[in-house]
Every structure is written in C-alpha cells, then in structure tokens.
C-alpha cells in the first residue's frame, strides 16, 4: 500500500470576480512507505497547495488523493498524518508538554497515557529537560523540534511538512535536517516535505519532485541515491553535488519553459 497516491489532480482557485488561477494541473504522484519526498519549485508553483491537498485541508477540483489506502478526507479524520509548518505554531498558553499532548487530547487519550507519550516524544527530539517550559522560553530551532514532536505524537505513519526550517539560520537548519532524518528513521515515518532550498531537498530526500508555475505542474522527479544513513559527510559527497546541479538545472529548465510560454501568451 502506498503512503500517498495523487492521481489526475487539478486545483483551480476561482474567487468571485478575480480570474481563475490554475494552481495545479494534471498532478500524478505516488509516495511509497518509508520514502522521503521533497517538493521544490519557484513561488507560485503550487507545492504548498499540493501538500494541503494531501492533508485534505483543501479539496481538489478534479482527480483523487489517497493517503494510507483511504480517501484523503478519511485519512484526516483518522489523523493518519502529522503536520508541521514554517511557523512552529505552538500555543503560547500551553506548556511544551501540553502542546505535544494536544493531538492526543483531541483523540480522547487519557491524561496518564498523554503525559507518557509526550515525555517519550521529548526524549525523541532530545529536549526532555524542557517539558514544563513555556514556548516563549525556547529558541526558534527548539520550537520547531517541539512542533515535530507534536506532529509525531500520535505516531502517524506520514509526516507532512511545509518549509519547516525556512525561518531558521543555516547552522540550525543543517542540524535540524540531520535530526529530522534520525527521527524519521527511528519512527519509520514517510515524509512529504516542501522546501525552497535545493541542498535541503537533496540532503533529505530519496526523491525530489521539481515543479513549475502557471499552471502548477510537476516537471521532473529526480532520484537521490545517497543511501539511508546520511550525515555531515554526505554534504561533501560527489553524488550530493551532482544531484544539486541536476535539481538546479531542472528548476532552470522549468523557468526557461516559463519564459517561452510568456512570449507565446502575448
């Protein structure tokens, strides 16, 4: 059973008087269990829209989205995925532990089990000593780790992330990437990851999906054969650089196409 199957999906935003925006056209994408798939592309290519379709936060105009073998709507109701955004989005009136417990609270877990799971998640993201802190007492990187702990608290098989490290500095970002890989390997979580950063996409992913805008579509899918165990040495690997070049050229290619289309349109 595939983790995510997107087939023949179009998403068209038409808000009243404004012109129709073809956010996504003819999207087909399958993500297998245990894969780490990044979506990359220029602003407006619909990568975040695609992620929200998988999360069933919005409905497709045409086509179907299947998550864990169920329609995306049912998967959302069953909390089959966890989600993390660019903003950590912690609730500032809840302690760190209480934040991690929130999805479990909504699932109806009792207090003892919730607390035990929250502490387990804090161990996983290596912040056990911050259990009773309030969010404002944490740095941006720590907040993002708590957000990941919260997303994984119910042990969902799938993690959806929308530029989660976009607001962090380069050093913290690289550290967080390594941490994310460690956490996902340990929990056997499948990840769909939206990013603007080419090295980030290559370092993390088993496959990089390159997208282009107007209309939003998938132009290339690039395999990254860097193996399972990636570390700081991976960033020096020749395959790493080779793949960065490949993704960059794919992105440039979609841009050139865009330029050509622009002329055609006139």
């Amino acid at each position: 059973m595939s983790a995510v199957v997107v087939s023949g999906v179009d998403k068209i935003f038409s808000t009243g008087k404004a012109a129709r925006v073809e956010a996504l056209v003819g999207i087909d994408l399958t993500v297998e269990q245990g894969e780490f798939v990044s979506l990359i592309g220029p602003s407006g290519c619909g990568k975040s829209t695609l992620l929200r379709l998988i999360a069933n936060l919005i409905e497709p105009t045409a086509g179907s989205v299947t998550v864990n073998g169920k329609p995306a709507h049912q998967a959302r109701l069953d909390q089959d995925y966890g989600m993390a955004f660019q903003q950590a989005g912690l609730f500032d009136w809840r302690s760190v532990t209480k934040n991690i417990e929130l999805p479990l609270e909504l699932k109806g877990w009792d207090r003892t089990n919730r607390r035990a799971r929250a502490l387990e998640m804090l161990e996983l993201v290596k912040l056990p000593e911050f259990a009773s802190h309030m969010p404002w007492q944490l740095s941006g990187g720590m907040q993002q780790r708590i957000a990941i702990a919260r997303a994984l608290a119910a042990h969902p098989p799938l993690l959806l992330m929308d530029k989660p490290f976009g607001a962090l500095d380069e050093m913290t970002r690289e550290h967080m990437q390594a941490e994310l890989l460690r956490i996902c390997a340990k929990t056997a979580t499948t990840v769909v990851f939206v990013t603007h950063s080419i090295p980030e996409a290559v370092y993390l992913s088993t496959r990089v999906v390159v997208m282009s805008p107007r209309p939003g579509r998938i132009t290339n899918i690039i395999d990254v054969p860097l193996g399972g165990a990636r570390n700081d040495d991976t960033r020096e690997d020749s395959i790493f650089f080779q793949k960065i070049t490949e993704v960059r050229e794919a992105l440039r290619g979609s841009e050139l196409q865009l330029g050509a289309r622009g002329i055609e349109d006139r």
């Binding site: 989600m83 955004f85 609730f91 929130l102």
Partner: peptide, 26 residues
C-alpha cells in the same frame, strides 16, 4: 492564527473543540 486554524483542521477538530482549545484561550 492561520497556522493554528490549519493545525486544528488537520486534527479534524470539531467547532466546539476549536472554541475550547484555541478560541477561548486566545
């Protein structure tokens, strides 16, 4: 906050849960 609204939506939270867990404390 939009991020909180999306998060609660992703948890399939009901209108009352959204009220109790997010709107009221907010």
């Amino acid at each position: 906050a939009p991020v909180h609204a999306e998060l609660m939506h992703s948890y399939a939270a009901s209108g009352w849960q959204l009220l109790g867990k997010v709107r009221v404390p907010n």
